[in-house]
């Protein structure tokens, strides 16, 4: 597994750059991951990242967008505004969880 340095910490990532160790994530890292892809985290982003991380821990897989909308309670439109173009992939990248694998 490759490693990369995020916010001064060496973290393990997959070939694309998604973090692979759940516990290596912290808020400083999230801020830097976000800025790597041109997103500045605001108060609106954090609850979504927390939901992704908690849900991943409970369910063992990254929630799809529909679950983030229905269970996490953030409307789809807002998810597209906060994480433009590819919300599912971008939010999981910043939350330090794997890319979602479902079809819907």
């Amino acid at each position: 597994m490759p490693t990369t340095t995020i916010a001064g910490t060496e973290v393990q990532v997959d070939d694309e750059g998604f973090m692979t160790e759940y516990d290596e994530w912290n808020e400083d890292i999230a801020n830097e991951l976000a800025s790597n892809i041109g997103i500045e985290l605001s108060d609106a982003h954090w609850p979504i990242l927390s939901f992704l991380r908690e849900d991943y821990k409970e369910q063992g897989e990254t929630p799809m967008l529909r679950r983030v909308a229905n269970v996490g309670g953030v409307p789809t439109k807002q998810l597209f505004q906060l994480f433009p173009k590819k919300p599912a992939k971008k939010m999981s990248y910043i939350a330090g969880v794997p890319k979602p694998h479902g079809c819907v």
Binding site: P2, T4, T5, I6, V13, E16, G17, F18, E32, N36, I37, G38, P84, K85, K86, K89, K90, Y93
Partner: peptide
């Protein structure tokens, strides 16, 4: 340079 996924924006 950190390894950053290409989101193809």
């Amino acid at each position: 340079k950190p390894l950053v996924p290409d989101f193809g924006d």
